[in-house]
Simulated assay, not measured.
Amino acid sequence: MRFDTVTIVGVGLISGSFSLALKDRGLVRRVIGVSRTQASTQKALELGLIDEALPLDEAVKQSDLIYVAIPVDVTIPVMGQIMDMITDRQIVADAGSTKLALCESLDGHPMRSRFVAMHPMWGTEYSGPEAAVRDAFKGRCCVICEKEKSDADAVDVMEDLYRQMGMHFVYMDANSHDMHAAYVSHISHITSFALANTVLEKEKEESAIFELAGGGFESTVRLAKSNPSMWLPIFMQNREHVLDVLNEHISQLRKFKSCLEKENEGYLRELMENANKIRRIIK
């Protein structure tokens, strides 16, 4: 399988890595980039992530596959424009971290079956075209939502693409995806942002943070470097599920706080030993 032309809408971390994977495997002849900023376009061209840049309507007309990886709040209106322009010989896929709002916005669209709702479960705290990396998706999971609403050939093509990049698949309805994403991804980012704010508020000496911060702090807080323009709309779109997991997280923090206040070493150890069970799931 080889595409003649693929358009990536957004030329950042995910789409840039996707483009590199296509190019490295000889799966595409030409990649067109669509970006809101000239700086991103120029950097993507310099890095070889795209071969040329075009406005959205011109890019869509020339493409076999349109791959959308932009903040989730702007994905909905942009996806509406794309779906209004495509033919039944084209495929549209996204890489967004929330799915319910997008899928609901496209439900009933006459070209809905040419869209494959996807979430490759990979990312870093960095953004922009310069953040793109090779073999980004190898060994990772890709969630496909509402598979039954997409044409079988479109799903087969996207599965084959990601399979060649080293991914495996999980299938969910859009609401289940958003719920699980809140538990294993979105809460991690909120916690990291909150921890960074806590340290910045209490520790006024930046040199102390830099010199004394060990590996544990660095790994826990690194997500706080993530781009707010991407994560703010994710939190807001997935507000109900994020609030649910955030309430549970606050409840757990209160248990630890209570143990320390009451000097309850027994229950504190029990809480930590229970948390150790995560070793069975994550190596």
Rank of each mutant, 00 (worst) to 15 (best):
S97V: 01
C142S: 13
V184H: 05
K147T: 07
T98E: 04
G166L: 13
L102G: 09
F137G: 06
K147H: 11
A154P: 03
M121S: 10
A182D: 08
R114Q: 11
A154S: 07
Y171N: 03
S188L: 07
A131N: 06
K147P: 00
G166S: 06
G139N: 05
L106K: 10
M167L: 14
C142Q: 08
V184M: 08
A182H: 03
A117L: 05
S97K: 04
G139F: 13
A174P: 04
S188E: 09
A181M: 08
A152H: 10
C142A: 12
A101S: 12
V116N: 02
A136M: 13
T124I: 03
V170G: 14
K99I: 09
P120D: 09
K99A: 08
E146R: 09
E104T: 12
V155H: 07
S176D: 12
S185C: 07
M158Q: 01
D178R: 03
M158H: 11
D153N: 03
M167C: 13
A132W: 04
C103F: 12
C142D: 04
E148P: 01
L102Q: 14
S97A: 11
L102W: 03
C141K: 12
I144H: 00
A152C: 12
Q164H: 10
A95H: 08
R114P: 05
E148I: 05
E104K: 14
Y183M: 14
A132V: 01
E130W: 07
A182C: 11
L100W: 06
A136H: 07
M118L: 14
G96F: 06
M179I: 12
A152P: 15
Y171G: 04
G166Y: 11
M165A: 09
R112N: 12
S150E: 06
A182R: 03
E104S: 11
